[in-house]
Simulated assay, not measured.
Amino acid sequence: MTTNDTAPVRFDTKIAVLLREDLESWQRLNVTAFLVSGLGADHPEVVGERYEDADGTAYLPMFRQPVLVFEGSKEVLTAAHGKALARVLPRAVFTSDLFATGNDRDNRAAVRAVGKDRLDLVGLAVYGPRNAVDKVFKGARMHP
């Protein structure tokens, strides 16, 4: 990241989410929120400082960099998952089974019940060096 206050900020890492293209709008929003929610816990460097308005009201900190959202076919998502695993990049998955669960325990059990090559993925979040994430998401397109 650039330290000059007047220069544009350019990050050497990327946070990106890939959604299956056939999801409904509410599903896209839900999946994206769930996928990025764990990133700050495992990688605290992605979270910036707390916010404060002119009146001194405090707000929670947020990611220090944008989250890019992509979409692609089931095949693109499956390929991206395999590439993320091969590159050992930090990742989060959301499977179609999670739409039928209502809590974290059942979510984790649903993922645990299926082997990595048989997961019915509807979303994938990846964090890592910018060029590595770009290679993982090759074939995906920016979410409209």
Rank of each mutant, 00 (worst) to 15 (best):
E24Y: 10
L77S: 02
T3V: 13
Y51L: 15
R91I: 06
D134K: 02
D22N: 13
S25W: 10
N131K: 09
T95S: 01
R130K: 13
A41F: 09
L89N: 01
F94D: 00
D53T: 05
S73I: 07
D120C: 04
L121Q: 13
N103S: 11
V17C: 06
R118P: 10
H81D: 08
A109K: 09
K74Q: 13
V88G: 08
V122N: 00
A41E: 13
H43N: 13
G38F: 01
F70C: 14
V133W: 00
M142P: 05
L98I: 09
R108T: 00
S25M: 12
V136T: 10
D97M: 05
D12H: 12
A80R: 00
L121A: 12
R105F: 08
M1T: 10
F34E: 07
A125R: 01
G40I: 02
D42P: 14
V36G: 02
T6L: 15
V136H: 00
G72M: 03
N30A: 09
V88R: 15
K138T: 11
D134N: 13
R91E: 09
R141W: 06
E71C: 07
R130D: 14
H143N: 04
T95Q: 01
T101Q: 09
D134F: 01
N107A: 10
V17I: 00
D55W: 13
Q65G: 06
L121R: 02
A113C: 09
S25C: 13
R20I: 05
Q65H: 11
V9K: 14
T6N: 15
P90R: 07
V47E: 01
D104Q: 13
D104I: 06
F137A: 03
A41D: 12
N103D: 12
D53Q: 13
K14G: 05
Q27C: 11
N103Y: 09
V69D: 03
Q27D: 06
A84Q: 01
V69P: 02
S96R: 05
P129A: 13
L60M: 10
G40Q: 03
G48V: 07
P66K: 02
R141A: 11
V111Q: 06
A110C: 10
R20A: 05
V136R: 00
Y59L: 05
T3M: 11
D12M: 11
D120E: 05
K74F: 09
T78Q: 08
T2Y: 11
L18R: 04
G38M: 07
F94N: 00
E49D: 14
T95I: 07
A7D: 11
G48R: 03
V31H: 00
A110L: 03
I15Y: 05
R118S: 10
D120G: 05
N103C: 03
G123Y: 02
G128N: 10
G40S: 07
D117M: 09
A79E: 08
R28A: 06
V69C: 03
L18I: 15
D22H: 10
S73F: 06
R105P: 03
